[in-house]
Amino acid sequence: MRIRATVAAVSGALALSALAAPAAQADASAGDTTITKVVVDGDNMASVGTSVAKTIKVSVTAQDDSGILSAEEFSLSGPDYGYFTTGKPTCTVVSATTSTCTASVLVDPKVDYLTNASAGTWYVDALVDARDGDFVWKEKAGSFKFQRASKLSVNASPEPVTKGRTITVTGKLSRANWEDLQYHGYTNQSVKLQFRKKDSSTYTTLKNITSNSTGELKTTVTASTDGYFRYSFAGTTTTPAVNATGDFVDVR
């Protein structure tokens, strides 16, 4: 099942899914089986761009006094009728009572017809079976951010520059539009201008500026010493954090 299907199609898929899960999508369990951890893509954040397929990995850790036998395909659901199912999970034993079951789903923006409204908080539903016949079915066992990939550029000029003169730093913040498969400026967003001295490994924030109506960034600073300028965006629920690659300025 793919995103931006019709409501009827999604409802049908959920109905079929419910046949395989207890209590028609309501939490249920038998015995002492529990889900203890859910991790999506390592940090519970998954971003998709406009052209490259993204493999989203889901890991569900569960425990039972008899050990874990298997898990059914995980369901991922989000805003605007967003819905995916993973492949069949592989369960790896952690201890006599605990296993981590892992599966993935391939999301291709050119094929899956993502809508921009689908970006945001998504949930993982999981059904895990224990070796003694116990099981646990949990709706919203975990959550993650499903995000529109972001890009951030920077250019500091002139290069080189005389100490005490003005440096103009421009750039652009943009993010994936899943509906036309292009990147567009992300408007009215707070972005940090940061600087790293030539022999340092640490960036320091100089000021905060806001992207304009086309996502463009522009500000000025006074040249003082050799180093790298970059813009840094902290991210939002729908868009991941991103740092521009530092642009070196030679101050003479």
Rank of each mutant, 00 (worst) to 15 (best):
I167H: 04
K138C: 08
R165H: 07
Y183I: 08
L173T: 01
K163L: 04
S190Q: 10
E159T: 09
L193Y: 06
A126V: 15
R131I: 12
S150M: 05
T187F: 09
T162Y: 04
E159I: 11
G171F: 13
L181G: 03
K197M: 15
T210M: 10
S174T: 13
L152G: 05
H184V: 08
D132Y: 09
Y183M: 12
S153W: 14
S174N: 10
L193P: 15
N208R: 10
T121D: 04
G185P: 02
T115P: 08
S143E: 07
N116V: 06
P158R: 04
N208C: 07
S153F: 14
L193D: 04
D112I: 00
Y203N: 00
T202F: 04
T162G: 06
D112Y: 12
L114Q: 03
S143M: 10
P160K: 03
K172F: 13
D112V: 00
A156M: 09
R148Y: 01
T210L: 09
V136C: 09
Y113E: 09
K110S: 14
K163T: 02
A176K: 02
K163M: 04
K207I: 10
D134V: 08
V111C: 09
K198M: 13
T202R: 05
L181K: 12
R148P: 00
Y183F: 15
L193K: 09
G133T: 03
K140P: 02
Q182G: 05
S200W: 03
F135M: 01
G185T: 00
L173F: 02
E179R: 06
E159D: 15
T204S: 11
T202D: 00
A119V: 01
D180N: 15
G185V: 00
S200Y: 05
L114C: 04
L206P: 02
W137K: 09
A126S: 13
K192H: 13
T205A: 06
W137F: 14
I209M: 08
S118W: 08
Y186P: 00
Q194C: 01
K163G: 04
S157A: 11
S118N: 05
W178R: 10
N177G: 12
I209H: 02
G185W: 03
N155G: 08
Q189F: 10
R196K: 15
E179L: 12
D180C: 08
V107G: 00
F144H: 04
S118K: 10
R131S: 14
T170Y: 05
E179I: 11
L206E: 03
R131T: 12
G171M: 14
I167T: 09
D180R: 11
T162R: 09
E179W: 13
L206R: 06
K145W: 11
P158F: 10
D125I: 01
G142V: 01
K192Q: 12
V107S: 01
W137R: 07
D199V: 02
K198G: 06
K138G: 04
D125A: 15
A126Y: 07
T166D: 02
F144S: 05
L173D: 00
G142W: 04
T121S: 13
Y183P: 05
D199N: 14
T187C: 02
R148F: 01
Y123H: 14
D112W: 10
T162D: 01
A149D: 11
S143T: 09
G164W: 03
Y123A: 14
W178Y: 05
A130W: 01
K110H: 12
K151R: 14
K197Q: 13
L193M: 07
V136Q: 11
V128G: 02
T121R: 15
T162Q: 10
K151P: 01
H184N: 03
W178P: 08
